[in-house]
Design a protein around this nucleic acid. Structure first.
Lengths: 137, 137
DNA sequence: TAAATATATGAGCATTTGTTCATATATTTA
DNA sequence: TAAATATATGAACAAATGCTCATATATTTA
């Protein structure tokens, strides 16, 4: 359990500077004002959830390669599998994740299914990510 | 196993349009040219790894909250734990992850340890993430 | 120096994740 | 219609993840 619930702070049950929660041996909130300030500007929970899901999509090597590829070319599953050197099945599973995240869309053409980006932000996210890694090392 | 290794394509072992890998029942590469083109512009593997690690840091709710908080305020562990309503231990563990990703830095002050951002890109990544979720829904 | 406090960390554990394997579905082609 | 092909998907499983609990470390304070 956390040292002190935010609700306690907001409701005033937490005293400024030294607020103790029960007899737990956990730490006390030192800067209630700072916590309150941050909390005031924190995006709502659904937005945070959506953001976490978005970044999670970029947080796996296979998906990252797929997303990058689709910033350059519309590709069928088969092409993608060859590109990332991974089984068709693995790629299909990951494409499902990306579809779920609304990052890619697809069009059937004969036996093939062509995937492309469904989100303008993907390219921009890549740019920043690249700038980051180039800057960092 | 993948349908066709990229090396096979690059080396010319893969024929344009209909290249079969052994007698596997996996799909064939349809667009060798597209695969080659994408591959040519794909960031090097270390960069991709670093990017995946970067985005992974943003891909968890607790860490996302922590990172956002630190874009607004320098905070001690105790403050953060109260803010995200999570145990001091859980927060400490996640801070270690963020330290490992070089996203945060810390300064000891007495018994407390104050964390702050160690990366200029964090704010920008947040902005894009927010723009994304606002646009998407 | 002893007690209190803030933070860090290892072990354990349940959950999630990413892959493979087998197989289903859909479409084209013979 | 039957065979071939492209993709999708469920089950199984190993690895990674995120938390809790107990405890260690470091610092301050009594």
């Amino acid at each position: 359990m956390a040292g002190l619930k935010i609700e306690d702070i907001e409701s005033g049950r937490a005293l400024p500077e030294r607020s103790v929660e029960g007899d737990s041996c956990e730490c006390r909130v030192v800067h209630v004002d700072a916590v309150r300030k941050v909390r005031a500007s924190m995006p709502a929970e659904p937005a945070m959830d959506a953001m976490a899901e978005l970044f999670k999509s970029f947080g796996d090597g296979t998906r990252l390669h797929i997303l990058y590829a689709l910033t350059k070319e519309r590709m069928c599953v088969c092409d993608i599998a060859a590109l990332v050197n991974m089984s068709q099945s693995a790629v299909s599973h990951q494409l499902r994740v990306l579809r779920g995240a609304r990052l890619v869309k697809y069009e059937k053409e004969g036996k093939s299914v062509y995937y492309s980006l469904d989100d303008d932000h993907v390219k921009k996210i890549f740019e920043i990510g690249l700038a980051h890694v180039k800057h960092t090392r």
